[in-house]
Simulated assay, not measured.
Amino acid sequence: MADTGFFKGWLGPFKLIRRYTTRKPEPESGELGRVYEAHNVLTSNPALVLIPSESAPMEPQEEWRVRLRSQSAPPYVALEVEKAPASGRLSQLRGVLELLGTVVERLGNGEEARAHLTCLPMGPLESLKYRAGRAWRWTRASRKRTFAVCFLMYLSLRLVVHVVEMDVYGLNWDMTPRPVMQGVPVRPADARRAPALINKASVAQGPIAYPLPAKPFIDQAKAPCIPNEGEVEINGGCWVALEKRPPCFGSQAEYEGKCYLPVSARSRDKREPRSFHQ
């Protein structure tokens, strides 16, 4: 009987809920228009609303507000007029009543329309309570979603604050305090890590060493050298003697039965000048 889709609209005090599918009209009667299940939002009474089509038998031209009443004992039918135009025509009233009669006829024995029109209307208090209950159910679900989002945001914020506190107060991830000197956090040397490494991948490992040159390389540190850091001066350049004995690797210099590596001149860039006594 009713369409699956919902029509969300208003006509005067009537809230249109959904459209009904009426029986096919007779060829001579024409199409009436669209029939909707509706509620009067002022009284909460169930209603039927017809939006006439261009081919409808008549179109209202006056504003009438009437109420129909029928009773079985004693039997009578009454037409009560609540509002009528000062120069109202009975032909207009008759045409409207006939139009509504045709609508009810074409609805036939539809169970959905019958159940809608025979339901007990809710008074103002009942209607307000019903709407408040629907709003409460919706807001309760919304509050649950909002609480979950806020809780996740709180956990994320606590995690960020925890990480910042660990960095500010000198804490490692294993919760080991860093030593503090004069209020400044100092990172201790990790016994598991070497202070300096030689990148073997960047050093050629040729089978033949080169002889120690007669003068320093362009990028080699020049004398004076720093003996207390393992440097020795040979031919004006600074070298570090290795434990390895010849044959030396191709990246090492061979001199008087030892293998040497030149000291980089860049190691002097940030070093303060110093003097030493031989």
Rank of each mutant, 00 (worst) to 15 (best):
A2F: 04
D3A: 09
D3L: 04
F7V: 15
W10G: 06
W10T: 15
G12A: 11
K15M: 14
K15D: 13
R18N: 05
R23L: 07
P25M: 09
E28A: 11
S29W: 00
G30K: 04
G30S: 07
G33K: 03
V35W: 05
Y36C: 12
A38W: 02
V41S: 11
T43K: 05
A47H: 03
V49S: 11
I51Q: 15
S53P: 06
P57L: 08
E59G: 03
E63Y: 02
R65F: 10
P74F: 14
P74I: 08
P74W: 13
V81Q: 05
A84L: 08
A86N: 07
S87H: 08
L90V: 05
S91K: 02
S91N: 03
L97N: 03
V103A: 07
V104Q: 11
G110W: 02
E112D: 13
A113M: 14
R114E: 07
H116E: 00
L120F: 03
L120C: 01
P124H: 09
S127M: 02
A135R: 09
A135K: 08
S142F: 02
T146Y: 05
F147Y: 06
F151M: 15
Y154G: 13
V160W: 07
V164I: 09
Y169E: 03
W173L: 15
T176R: 13
V180K: 01
M181Y: 04
V186L: 14
R187I: 10
R192Q: 11
L197H: 06
I198G: 02
S202C: 04
P211V: 03
P211F: 00
A223G: 09
C225L: 01
C225F: 02
G230C: 09
I234Y: 06
G237H: 01
C238F: 02
C238E: 04
A241C: 06
E243A: 05
R245N: 01
F249G: 10
F249Y: 11
G250I: 13
A253I: 04
E254T: 14
K258F: 04
C259D: 07
P262V: 13
E272H: 10
P273R: 04
F276Y: 06
